[in-house]
Structures are given as C-alpha cells and as structure tokens.
C-alpha cells in the first residue's frame, strides 16, 4: 500500500509516495501541521519522491528515489534519518537557482548569522543552542542565497543532532524533547529537534546576511579565541563550503562576492558554546 502526502516547505515543496506505514505519523513528530499536508491539486511540487520497498530487496529496505535517480536504501528501522538525508540530497544536488552553502543560518533582528563548517566541528550543537535561546532558525544545513538580491532564504526543517550533541543539548536544556532518536545509523545515533514556533511561522521571511562564523568546538581550548577573515579569505572559505558554486559559474561568483562584501567573517575556536554565542551577540550589536 502506498501513502501519499506533501511537505509544503519553503522554498521547495515535496510530494512523497511511500510504502512505509508509519512514516507519516513519525514525521508528525518533526514537522508542524502547517507543512505536513495531504496532497493538493492546486499546488506545484518541486520534488516528487518515491520512498518504497522493493520485493527483491531482502529485509524490507526502502529505496529513496527522485524520478529514476536512486539515492540510498534505508533499513526499516532507520527510515526517518534516511528520509531527512534524502531531502537534503534533493536540495543540494538538483537546484541551482539559489547559491547553496553547507551551513546553519539563524536570525535575530533581521540580521542573519551564517555558520558554515565541515561535519564534526560542532555547528549543529551551536545552532541548536542558539535556536533554543530565541534565535529564529532558517536552516541547520542549507544556507540559500538568492543571487538576485543577496538575501538569505529560509529552508526550515527539523534540526538534526548526532552522538555527543544529544547529551550536550539534553544537559543544557533538560525540558527539550529530542524526537525520533535512531541508533546505529552510519553516522551514529541521530535525533531531531523541532524548529521553534517562530521559526515555522516566519519560514517565508528572508534575512540580510550580517555575520559568517566558522565555528570549531575544541574541548581542550582555553575559553574562546578567534580572528577576523579578510574579504577574499571569506569568499574562498564560502566557495569551499558551497554545494553548487561551481555549477552556478558567473552568477555564483557575483552572489558570493556580494555576500562576502556585505557580511563579516570570523573563525572561532571555543570550549563552551555559550562563549561563542555571547561573542556573536556582541558582534551583531556593533556599529
């Protein structure tokens, strides 16, 4: 039996056909009822996804597919993380209207802070801490820049946390509920944080880029240290962290140029995320 439902996210809408009986109810844990919907005929969907098991696949693995394009097989007990990774894959691979940087983005007072970083640097933990302290989440994975006006587009989705981050967040915010905890994925233990109400509510509202922070958590560090990046160094670092800079050629170059001249870039190293957040607040209020 196939179930069909839609995720009416901004800026992309997904249409999902799945054979997994519980996927829909599992996703009600993560997505607001405003975005997890029944399909409508007055809506254009950007990505039509099949997430179904195949009779020749032993153990009931589900194949995540966009059209004929195959992403991965998911174990039956790991369908939620693989679904989330699949959506990331669609956005990172199949759109190049917007420049897409691998980064978390949060906003306060109309000003966006972009946190690009390679996996394992503590980006998601910092992002979760900021969101739980009242920042509006735009995305924990995809920083979308509109090349036309240089604005940051939100791409609000559940915030994914893994391994040590889970314990850190539970300790700092005991009241917070981590959803859909899944053990033994190839990235370890995964769990999700639902975006705050204001993050869902303003999911169509863009922000101006103001700060770009490259965070690095280091337990052995002494407090917080950091340095400012030159405009050209910032440009190069953003290009390295971008999914589609090379595809967007000239348009991508102009978009990155605008971003790196409009925003200021810093590298942070810290042993306590709160120190980094306080410093970010301070930088944001300068001028």
């Amino acid at each position: 039996m196939t179930t069909t439902f839609a995720l009416d996210l901004a800026p992309f809408k997904f249409l999902i056909h799945t054979s997994a009986k519980h996927l829909y109810s599992q996703l009600t844990d993560l997505y607001s009822p405003d975005v997890l919907l029944h399909t409508r005929s007055d809506c254009i969907y950007d990505f039509e996804i099949n997430y179904k098991n195949r009779f020749w696949q032993p153990g009931g693995s589900l194949a995540f597919q966009l059209g004929q394009q195959h992403f991965r097989y998911a174990d039956p007990d790991q369908i939620v993380p693989m679904f989330e990774w699949g959506l990331n894959w669609c956005v990172a691979t199949y759109q190049s209207r917007y420049l897409c940087i691998h980064a978390a983005v949060l906003e306060k007072g109309g000003k966006a802070v972009i946190l690009p970083a390679p996996p394992g640097s503590g980006k998601s933990t910092l992002c979760a801490m900021m969101m739980l302290q009242g920042w509006r989440l735009l995305s924990d994975e995809h920083c979308m820049i509109n090349p036309v006006d240089g604005a940051v587009l939100p791409c609000v989705r559940p915030l994914s946390l893994k391994n040590n981050s889970l314990a850190v967040i539970s300790k700092l915010f005991p009241a917070v509920d981590l959803k859909q905890r899944t053990e033994n994925t190839h990235k370890g233990t995964m769990a999700y944080l639902t975006p705050t109400e204001q993050s869902w509510l303003y999911r169509h509202q863009t922000a101006r880029p103001k700060l770009v922070i490259f965070p690095k958590y280091n337990a052995a560090a002494n407090g917080l240290s950091g340095y400012a990046l030159s405009e050209s160094a910032l440009f190069m670092q953003l290009a390295i962290n971008s999914f589609n800079y090379s595809v967007m050629a000239e348009t991508g170059f102009h978009a990155l140029h605008q971003l790196s001249s409009e925003a200021e870039g810093y590298c942070f190293e810290y042993n306590d995320g709160q120190l980094a957040i306080d410093q970010i607040e301070e930088l944001l209020h300068e001028e």
């Binding site: 800026p11 950007d46 967007m248």
Partner: peptide, 15 residues
Amino acid sequence: EVQTHLLSGFHYAEK
C-alpha cells in the same frame, strides 16, 4: 516553481 527549476537548468547548461 517552474522558473526555479528552469533557472537551475540554465545555470547547468551555462556551466
């Protein structure tokens, strides 16, 4: 929505 994806195709073709 259609413009989004046609623009993606345009960027890819230019590249």
